[in-house]
């Protein structure tokens, strides 16, 4: 069969979600951010909540997320996204409010906001993109950098006697009464993307049902920060990050 006979509107099975804008993303080739934006857009489209969703964008590479998803956005000061999400959700209780944060944002400067918002059980969704470094500023060590991992600020590898231990913030928030759903996902393969999408959908539904805070960690790659090609970065992530940050649900109540 000729390709031109297949490429017809009635045969289309997958394409770009209309919730995504036509703006070309500024992310590096192969960056996980683009994939995570896409699956959030697809969940919003499937649930029909485009008019009712408010995103809180962080400081970091994803600061420009408001250029890429056709929803309402607010931009928070560094680390303060859960506090801003708390206010937004309390003022507009019928809206779906989510934060989109990186590991430096959520686990360094924003640790207090993250833990207290989760402990209060605010009906928000926290999407936490963990690439184990500060990607935007040039690949410095973050709280979630692995022991021995080489970064711009730990050129001989992270030393626990000097830099402390990697902070498993997802495991921490799973212990808090306020969280209803805590999970760790990834987006490097098609299967992983589909699982992550289900997790995002469940989190949005929890938020509508007033069950508490849903916290989704997405273990991601930062190929430019790690100085690897996109495909090699995904492989490095599977070999090094997954053993320390194992995928799966940590809490589901």
């Amino acid at each position: 069969m000729d390709v031109n006979e297949i490429i017809k509107p009635e045969n289309k099975v997958y394409g770009k979600s209309p919730v995504l804008t036509d703006t070309v993303m500024h992310y590096c080739p192969g960056c996980s951010h683009g994939t995570i934006h896409k699956l959030i857009a697809e969940v919003i489209e499937e649930m029909g909540i485009q008019e009712k969703t408010i995103g809180i964008s962080p400081v970091g590479c994803a600061v420009f997320a408001y250029n890429y998803l056709h929803i309402d956005w607010q931009q928070a000061a560094h680390g303060r996204a859960p506090a801003l999400a708390t206010a937004t959700k309390r003022l507009y209780p019928d809206k779906y409010v989510f934060t989109y944060q990186g590991d430096g944002d959520i686990a360094a400067i924003g640790t207090s906001e993250t833990i207290h918002a989760c402990n209060r059980g605010e009906n928000i969704v926290v999407i936490f993109v963990n690439n184990a470094i500060y990607g935007m500023t040039g690949g410095q060590m973050s709280p979630l950098t692995l022991e021995g991992q080489v970064t711009a600020t730990t050129p001989y590898g992270r030393r626990t006697d000097l830099n402390g231990y990697p902070l498993k913030i997802t495991d921490l928030v799973a212990q808090l009464e306020g969280t209803c759903y805590v999970t760790r996902q990834s987006v490097q393969t098609a299967g992983a993307v589909r699982k992550a999408k289900k997790a995002v959908r469940k989190a949005f539904e929890n938020s509508a049902n007033g069950k508490g805070t849903s916290f989704i960690e997405v273990v991601s790659s930062c190929n430019s920060g790690w100085k690897l090609t996109p495909v090699a970065a995904n492989k490095w992530m599977e070999e090094n990050l997954f053993p320390f940050y194992p995928l799966g649900d940590l809490k589901d109540k």
């Binding site: 979600s17 992310y27 960056c31 996980s32 951010h33 994939t35 896409k38 393969t189």
Partner: peptide, 9 residues
Amino acid sequence: TVCPDSVIT
């Protein structure tokens, strides 16, 4: 599904 820039239909 895995395309970060949603360029594939």
